[in-house]
Write a protein that binds this DNA or RNA. Structure first.
Lengths: 208, 208
DNA sequence: AGTTTGGGAGTACGGATGTACACCGAACTT
DNA sequence: AAGTTCGGTGTACATCCGTACTCCCAAACT
C-alpha cells in the first residue's frame, strides 16, 4: 500500500497538520504538545522532527494555510458580481456562509488565535484583515457616487464593513450547518450590510 | 506588618489573581500552570489550594472579575447623556477609550479568551456581549423616531453597533495610551458611529 | 545488484507539572 | 493562659514534556 517516498511524506505531513488543527480546536495552539500531536497521528514523538523543526513551526504552517483559505474567501467575495446592491449583498453573505461552513477548522483557528496566539500569528492575522479592509476601500472607491468621499472615510467605512463580516463569521462558527441559527445570523448580516449601505448613500464627508 | 488573617488571605488571593492576569497576558489561560502562578506570587505551589481548588476555578474567578468591569463600562456608557447625537457619540467613545486604558488587563483577558478560552469562559463572555446588545436595543427603542422599526431590526442594529465598539476596544488594546494610533482609532470609532446613525435615520423597516 | 537515503521506531534523560501528605507557627477562640 | 484554626512550608512521587541518540528497513539511486 506504500507509495513513493515523497507521497508518503506529504501524507504524514498533512496528517500532522490535520491532527494539530483538530487538537487545537479544544484549547489553543499554545497548549499543544508535540507528543499529543504525534500520538494523534500515530507516529512516535521523535518522528515529528522529520517534518517540522518545532511545534512553533507547525503553528506557523497552520497559520499560513488558514490565511490562504481566508485569502481565497476574499478573492471569491470580490468576484461576487451582481446587478444591484441587494444582489451583491445576498451573494456575498451566501459566499461567506458557505466558505465558513466548508473550512470551518481554518476559520475557527483564525478566530481563536487572532488575539490569543503568539505574536507572530497575531500579526499575520491582523495584516490579513487589514489587507481585506484596504482592498474593499479601493473597490468602493471605484463605485459611482463616491467621489465626494475622503480617503479616510472610505477606509473607515471599509473597516466597519469588514468588522461586521468578521463578527458574522465568528458567530457562524458556533452554529450547525443549515440550522435556524445559521439562517438567522445570515439574515442579520444581510440587514447590517443594507443598513451600512443606507448610511453610506446618505453620507457626506466633512471637508476639513 | 502582619494584619488580621482575613486581610492577609484576601491580599494573597488578590496577588494570585493579579499574577494569573499578568502571566496569561502573554500566552493564554489554558497555558497557565499552577506552579508558574505560585512562583510569581511568591508562595509554594501547594499553598495555592488554600485559595482555589484548581486553576480552572481561578480562571472562572478571573472571568467574573473581567465581566464585572465590562458591566461597569456598559453602565457608564448608558449614563453618558448629551444634548444631541454628536455629543453622545463623542462621550461614549471617550468613555470607551478611558475604560479600556484603565482596565487594560481585564479587556485583554476578555479579548483573548472570547474564542480561545474554555467553554464556560466563552459562554460567559458571549452572554455578557448579548446582554449589552439587548440593553442597547431597548435604549434605542425609547428614542423618538424609532416607532416604525421592527423589533428584529432594532436588535440587528444593536448588534452592529456593539460589534463596532468591541472591534474598537480590541484595536485600542494594541495601542499606547495617548499615542497617535489611539487617537486615530477613537476618531474612526466616532466616524463609524456617525455612519451607523445616518444609516439608522434613513432606514425603513420592511413590513413583511 | 549493491549502495545510499530518509522516514519512522525505540530508548533514555533532565526538567516541569499537579497533587498528596505531614508539619509549622502565628492569628484567633475559649 | 490553653487550645484551636488555618495560611504557608517542605518533601515526595507519578506523569508528561521536549529532545538527543542509535537503530531499522524499504524506497531511491548508481
Amino acid at each position: 500500500m506504500a507509495q513513493t517516498r515523497v507521497e508518503q511524506k506529504e501524507r504524514t505531513r498533512r496528517a500532522i497538520l490535520d491532527a494539530a488543527l483538530a487538537l487545537s480546536e479544544d484549547s489553543a495552539l499554545v497548549a499543544l504538545s508535540l507528543r499529543q500531536v504525534a500520538k494523534e497521528v500515530g507516529i512516535v514523538p521523535t518522528a515529528f522532527y522529520r517534518h517540522f523543526p518545532s511545534i512553533e513551526h507547525l503553528g506557523l504552517a497552520l497559520v499560513e494555510e488558514s490565511l490562504d483559505t481566508l485569502r481565497a474567501l476574499l478573492r471569491e467575495l470580490r468576484h461576487t458580481a451582481g446587478e444591484d446592491a441587494a444582489t451583491i449583498i445576498d451573494g456575498s453573505v451566501a459566499v461567506l456562509v458557505e466558505q465558513v461552513r466548508r473550512d470551518h477548522a481554518h476559520y475557527g483557528f483564525i478566530a481563536r488565535e487572532r488575539f490569543a496566539g503568539p505574536a507572530g500569528v497575531r500579526d499575520a492575522i491582523a495584516r490579513g484583515i487589514e489587507l481585506a479592509e484596504r482592498e474593499l476601500a479601493t473597490d468602493i472607491a471605484h463605485l459611482p457616487g463616491t467621489d465626494t468621499w475622503t480617503e479616510r472615510d472610505l477606509q473607515v467605512l471599509s473597516e466597519l464593513i469588514v468588522g461586521s463580516m468578521v463578527t458574522t463569521a465568528e458567530r457562524l462558527l458556533g452554529t450547525e450547518p443549515g440550522s435556524p441559527a445559521e439562517e438567522r445570523i445570515a439574515d442579520a448580516a444581510r440587514t447590517q450590510l443594507r443598513m451600512m449601505l443606507v448610511g453610506a448613500r446618505n453620507w457626506r464627508s466633512r471637508t476639513t
